[in-house]
């Protein structure tokens, strides 16, 4: 048992070392805010070539929500590391909670998608446009 914990502690050091090494050798270049081009590229990559109208960007620029031509449909794009995760969802699955300093926390009933922070006015305008 103690051997296993020793192995685990050594593994934690190995993880730290590999983390630093990978970050040094392969710095994440996907650090800018999500753009229209990125959104369209990721739609193609996820085999969802849907036309999108406009999108609202999160405070960090790492998440964006777009309307599609289908009235009840939203697409959420989120940067995870150097890759992008995408969800196509009905409008009703978006939950907006007011938060500190004029922002709102937006969540989607998905345990692996922590809430995203948006500007309160931006997300309210967006939600109104979809109402």
């Amino acid at each position: 048992m103690s051997d296993l914990w020793a192995l685990f502690i050594v593994a934690l050091f190995a993880i730290l070392a590999i983390f630093a090494f990978v970050r040094w050798l392969y710095p994440n270049r996907e650090t800018h805010a999500i753009t229209d081009d990125i959104f369209r590229r990721e739609l193609r990559r996820h085999d969802q070539p849907k036309p999108i109208d406009n999108f609202v960007l999160s405070v960090s620029g790492e998440a964006a929500i777009a309307r599609t031509s289908a009235r009840d449909e939203l697409i959420i794009l989120r940067r995870v590391g150097d890759r992008y995760s995408l969800r196509v969802l009905p409008v009703s699955s978006l939950h907006i909670r007011p938060s500190k300093s004029e922002t709102a926390l937006v969540s989607i009933d998905d345990f692996t998608w922590p809430a995203m922070r948006f500007d309160m006015n931006d997300i309210q305008n967006f939600a109104r446009a979809n109402a």
Binding site: I18, V22, Y26
Partner: peptide
């Protein structure tokens, strides 16, 4: 191939956890 620091760290952490739990 490609590597990303957080992705690789999560993978190795899952492996270490699996070794400890599997071993126990």
């Amino acid at each position: 191939g490609s590597y990303e620091a957080k992705d690789a760290s999560t993978s190795i952490f899952m492996g270490a956890g699996s070794a400890v739990i599997g071993g126990s």
